[in-house]
Amino acid sequence: MLDTTAREMWELFEPVHDLVYFAPEARQAADGLGMRGYWMGYFALRAAPLGPVAPCVVTSSFSVFHPARVARALPDAWKYAAPADVLAAREEAMDAAMTRLFGAERTRSARFAEAADLAWEAAAAADTTGRVLAAANQALERPARATARLWQAVTTLREHRGDGHVAVLVSVGIGPLEAMVLKAAAGESDGPFLRETRRWEPADWTAAEDTLRERGFLAADGSLTRAGVAGRARVEQWTDRAAERPWRALGAERTGRLAGLLEPLARAVGESGLLPAGNPVGLPPAGAHAAVTAAGARESG
């Protein structure tokens, strides 16, 4: 039977990571650093672990953005704040966001600290060979505060999974735009939202659709063909396999425990209204994968 642990854990930690994109504290932190607009803040906050790299490095590692979108933010962002200052600001912002959203009593509890420590152990076990974003995040010092420790750990795990996903896409010849078209065709995200926020032209999107039709992945009406469904399923399965190592290292029992501790946090983010319509990260509806969560709930009850 296919092991779905890596995917189920992603569905639990992704919403917590996503606070850096959508929590008002993140935007306030970026504005406080002098960043000009949402996208400069986005790229600075996410790319800061890499150091003051050129926009081409960020375009490559983030994968889905048009180079012009990145070039409007970097390297100009580093004129307003050094990466080290951005890292400090995002840690403060995530502490504030998590304390507000989850409550001070919860974030100061022993259970929250346990979740942070388990997630940190899993993240430390991630193999970052060929995974630039994961390696840069994994190399950061262990924060003393449980909020910052948990957020940084799930961010390392998230970038580890994302790096692996990009590697799989490259290996099967699916480019950034084709990947987004497939995601939209599968009903996981809104196509126009993805295209516009990543700053691709309609002609680029149409060309990607044509490429996928030539491969037999996309039907004339824009839906996935049987080959498209199968091809995308293989990509997702290989992505899951590439993300298994942290959970094998943590072990089934403690992974289940972490799942049970993360589930109410993921639910709180989902119910907060912070995540935008259009589902840019492609998260499934809450409860779509419950096996690990259920096991963790039994362990943590």
Rank of each mutant, 00 (worst) to 15 (best):
A153I: 01
G41C: 04
A288F: 07
D204C: 08
D127F: 01
H17I: 06
T155K: 09
Q28M: 04
P192Y: 10
A144S: 14
T155F: 01
V86A: 13
L218H: 04
E299L: 14
A252I: 03
A68T: 14
A73H: 09
A26G: 01
T4D: 15
Y21C: 07
Y80P: 02
G278F: 12
L169W: 03
R267Q: 13
T239L: 04
R108K: 12
A185F: 12
P49Q: 07
P285T: 10
L274N: 15
L2S: 13
P15E: 10
L74D: 07
E8V: 05
R27E: 12
P24I: 06
T147Q: 14
P83Q: 12
P202E: 07
E8Q: 15
W151P: 12
A110N: 07
P280H: 11
S223C: 08
G231R: 06
L262G: 09
L157N: 03
E188V: 14
L258P: 06
V168Y: 07
Y42N: 00
A88F: 11
C56A: 10
L157G: 07
T155A: 13
A148K: 05
G187N: 13
L74W: 05
G164V: 02
S300M: 02
Q138M: 01
G216Y: 06
A148W: 02
Y42K: 07
W120C: 00
L101G: 11
P176K: 09
Q28P: 00
G260R: 13
T211H: 09
R111V: 05
S61G: 04
H289K: 03
